[in-house]
Amino acid sequence: MGEIRKKKSTGSAARFFRVFFSRGIITKICFGILILFVLIAVFAPLICKLIGFGPYEQDLFNMLKKPSSEHLLGTDDIGRDTLARLVYGARVSLLTGILSSVWAAIVGILIGLAAGYFGGLLNTVVMRITDAFIAIPPIIFTMVLSSMVKGNLLGLSLVIGVSIMPSYIRMVNGLVGSLKENDYVVAAKLVRENDFIIMLKHLLPNCMASMIVTFTMNVGTAIMLESTLSYLGVGIAAPTPAWGVMVSEGYKYLVNQPLVAILPGVCIMLVVISFNICGDSLRDAMDPRLRGKL
C-alpha cells in the first residue's frame, strides 16, 4: 500500500514539473532567472568580496566610469561600483517583495476565509470595504502611507502588503463561497465540527493552488511598487542600494554613463516578468481549470 501511494505521489510531482515547464523554454529561463536572483541576493556579501567593492564604497578616482576590469559594470556619480549596488539591490527588492506578499497573504486569506465562510452581512461589508480599497490606486495609497515608515524596509513591506491584500481577500472569498456548498463541509457542520477547524482544515487546503499562484504574481507586483516608490523618493531611502533609487540617481547621467540607470531597470523588469510567467505556469501546472480566472 505504502509503495503504491509513493509511486502515485512521484507520478503527480513529475506531472507537475512536466506541465510547469510545458510552456517551452520561456518558463525554464524565467525560473532560472528567479533562482539566479535569489542566489545573488543570498550571497550578496560574498559576491561583493569577490568583485572587491562594497555597495557603499566610494572610489573617488573612478566616477561615472565605463565598464572596466576593475569595475565590471562601471561606477556611478560618486564612484560606487554599479555591480555591487545591483547585487545588494536584489536583496532589497526580493526581500520587500516576498515579505509584503507574505503579510498580505496571512491577513488577506484569513479575512477572505472568515467572510466567505460566515457569509451574510459580514461578507457583504468585508467585500464592499475591499472594493473601496481597490478603488484607490495602489501607488497613491502606498505613497501616502510610506511617508510614515521613512525608508525602512520592514515598514515599507507592511505598507505594500496592505495595498495588495485585497487580491487575496477577493480570491479566497470567491473560492470559499463555492467550496462551502460541498458535501464534506456540510457533513463537517452536521457533526458540529468547530467553525475554525472547518475553515482551517477543510477549506484552506482546497484554496492552496490559487493561493500559491496569487502569491507568486503578487511578489512581482510588490517589487514593482517598491521600485516605483523608491524611484519617487518615498520608498527605500538612499543611499541604500534599491533598484528604484539607482534609476533615479542615475537619471541625470543617462547621456554620459547610461548603464547606471539602465541596468537596475533591466533587473526590475527581469524579476517582475519572471514572477509573472512562473505564476502563469504554476497555475497551469497546479490547476488547469484556473486558467483565465487568476
Binding site: 512581482g220 514593482m224 521600485s227 516605483t228 524611484y231 519617487l232 528604484g244 534609476v247 533615479s248 540607470a261 537596475p264 531597470g265 526590475i268 523588469m269 527581469l270 517582475v272 516578468i273 509573472n276
Partner: peptide
C-alpha cells in the same frame, strides 16, 4: 507588464 513605467 514587467517594465517599470518610470524607467521606460
Amino acid at each position: 507588464l514587467g517594465a517599470p513605467q518610470f524607467w521606460l
